[in-house]
Design a protein around this nucleic acid. Structure first.
Length: 569
RNA sequence: GCCGACGUAGCCAAGUGGUUGACGGCACCACACUUGUAAUGUGGCCGCGAAAGCGCUCGCCGGUUCGAAUCCGGCCGUCGGCUCCA
């Protein structure tokens, strides 16, 4: 039986076959299997329309039903180039294949493609598929090369799997933080201000504040000292740091005042370095751990902005540790511990660790030291990791921590980076016990990453139904009639005094309506107060996620809620 | 930035040249109902006005037309992609 990737790769051939039949002028280029499906890129002047996709699906169904065998044969390079002489893309590919490697052609029905192989035996193996979208894509992903049209599809063993996949997509849309952000009144992005700039509304700000406090408290316990640095600085600062040389296309342009050029800060490190450098440091001062909820601005191309995930202004839970080389290992591990504590507290259980090395041409002798510290930390924690050979920061290698959310989708969150370069560039030093000056090592780390993105992920992870300790409104009190309104207000007052976030439903509506409203807002507890509750000083507790309703005295409810909130964090 | 799709009031959403201030719904406001667990009813809901009416509206700017939310051009913005490699 064919594997899913083989099945999907075959589906890509079937798509190309259908395109050849219906749009003979379109030139096929490449069409691999991808996660959940496949795509095929075509060079064609006219765009493919949704109607075209329907016609293609129909034709593909015929090809699948015909159950054409997939037959391969080896040819010489010249034969291959000759066979595709009308198609410069295929010719280009054929020309690049090393001489000693065989070139293979695969045929289904009346369609032959240059292809390395990896297929199902016949087109009938494709149990269920659907074309999902059409999008532009550059030949070989290079924006200086021609723009092709990419048709995406998804393919599975059978209809049930396809339907389940489509349902997962739908669930993802339902949880989309952009949509929930509006529905739950959490945040907005305002056209009047510009793309990628986030306006945090009161309810979103409450959640953000809880996240910040959680992080702040963890850092305090681990000996970090909070600092605050300016949002703009002389361009010169970023020349020294190397950001202008390495990061220019992601920085906002200069702001000129009185003949001086300023830049919005794209990173917090130079600011923290200036604080370090402001005074003479002794080895007794190290490790010096400076932390800041630092707002940075990065220019992202308009086409890549996406909700809270990719923005132009965001706040990092940033910190920089300055330490001696001897302390590096220990500090790195401490940071890793703290990262894991954070992720777990916010309900993430699946982690992936990626060690990103600097690009080969940037690596120096300190990279080995830095990488060893990272590897040791991972191994001491018995954490499996993969290696990205060129994904490091310009100043050193890094460890990224990726999490999977409730729908199994991966996100890059925390990053911990080792840096021997910036201390050099800024000529940082400390006086050692030997009376000599030494160069400190820096660790850059952001555990949540960007608060904006972290928040967006939380919204989707919980589907907007934040656990009680995080919920912007923890309790809603709904009086059955106006007669109980005063009582309800009293309950809210007691809850507020006890430190909880509670609201009274003042609306002039029936109980059913009020319940519905607060359920829609995903409030963890709805307390109903009617004549009976007023008489015996209780509230009727409706807890999110359960059907059960119970009457509890106000004091008992406060105690219960306190317990829940304390243990959840 | 590039390719494609799209942009109608706070949100969702009808409407493709002429009874259109623009169907519906949600939300919001008022009044009535005094309510017992996921939607009570009626009315209002662009601005001014008691009303008649007047003025301004369908992302923005300009154009075509007797007449435009509807057609054309430019701009802005949103969404899906542009990493997966014969």
């Amino acid at each position: 039986m064919a594997t899913l990737p083989e099945l999907r790769h075959t589906a890509a051939h079937v798509l190309a076959y259908a395109v050849q039949d219906l749009f003979p002028e379109a030139k096929p280029t490449i069409g691999p299997a991808i996660e959940n499906g496949f795509y095929y890129d075509f060079d064609r002047a006219e765009p493919f329309t949704p109607e075209d996709l329907e016609r293609l699906e129909k034709r593909m169904n015929e090809i699948v039903a015909a159950d054409y065998p997939m037959t391969g044969r080896e040819v010489s390079r010249d034969q291959a180039i000759d066979a595709f002489k009308g198609n410069p893309y295929k010719v280009e590919i054929a020309g690049e294949i090393p001489k000693d490697e065989p070139i293979t052609l695969y045929t289904i029905g009346q369609f032959t493609d240059l292809c390395r192989g990896g297929h199902a035996d016949s087109t009938g193996a494709i149990g269920a598929f659907k074309l999902t979208s059409v999008a532009g894509a550059y030949w070989r992903g290079d924006e200086h090369k021609p723009m092709l049209q990419r048709i995406y599809g998804t393919a599975w063993y059978d209809r049930t799997e396809l339907d389940a996949y489509l349902a997962r997509l739908e669930e993802g849309r339902r949880r989309d933080h952009r949509r929930l952000g509006t529905e739950l009144g959490l945040f907005s992005i305002e056209e009047a201000a510009g793309g990628g700039l986030v306006f945090w509304h009161p309810k979103g700000t409450i959640v953000r504040g809880i996240v910040e406090n959680f992080i702040r408290e963890g850092l305090r316990e681990r000996g970090y000292q909070p600092v605050v640095t300016p949002h703009i600085a002389h361009e010169r600062l970023y020349e020294i740091s190397g950001h202008l040389a390495n990061f220019d296309e992601n920085m906002f342009g200069p702001i000129e005042v009185e003949g001086q050029r300023f830049r919005l800060k794209p990173m917090n490190c130079p600011g923290h370095i200036l604080i370090y450098r402001n005074t003479l440091r002794s080895y007794r001062d190290l490790p010096l751990r400076l932390s800041e909820f630092g707002t940075v601005y990065r220019f992202e191309r308009s086409g890549v902005l996406h909700g809270l995930n990719r923005v132009r202004g965001f706040t990092q839970d940033d910190a920089h540790l300055f330490c001696t080389p001897d302390q590096l290992q220990h500090e790195f591990e401490q940071t890793l511990d703290e990262a894991l504590r954070l992720m777990k507290a916010f309900g993430f259980t699946d982690f992936e660790y990626v060690l990103s090395r600097r690009a080969l041409e940037d690596r120096g002798e300190t990279d080995a030291v830095a990488e060893q510290a990272i590897r040791n930390a991972l191994e001491n924690h018995e954490l499996p990791y993969s290696v990205d050979e060129a994904g490091g920061a310009f100043y050193g290698p890094k460890l990224d921590i990726n999490v999977s959310d409730a729908l199994g989708r991966p996100w890059q969150l925390g990053t911990v980076q080792v840096d021997f370069v910036l201390p050099e560039r800024f000529e940082l030093k400390y006086r050692g016990s030997d009376g000599q000056d030494h160069r400190p090592v820096m660790i850059h780390r952001a555990l949540a990453g960007s608060l904006e993105r972290f928040f967006g992920i939380l919204v989707e992870h919980y589907g907007g139904a934040f656990p009680a300790w995080l919920a912007p409104v923890q309790v809603a009190v709904a009086p059955i009639s106006e007669n109980e309104l005063g009582y309800a207000r009293g309950v809210v007052e007691q809850l507020t005094k006890a430190g909880f976030r509670a609201e009274v439903d003042e609306s002039n509506e029936k109980l059913g309506y009020k319940i519905r409203h607060w359920k829609t807002q995903k409030v963890p507890y709805i307390l109903v107060a009617g004549k009976r509750e007023v008489e015996d000083g209780t509230v009727n507790v409706n807890q999110r996620g359960t059907e059960e309703k119970r009457n509890v005295s106000i004091g008992d409810f406060v105690d219960e809620l306190r317990t829940v909130v304390e243990t959840k964090r």
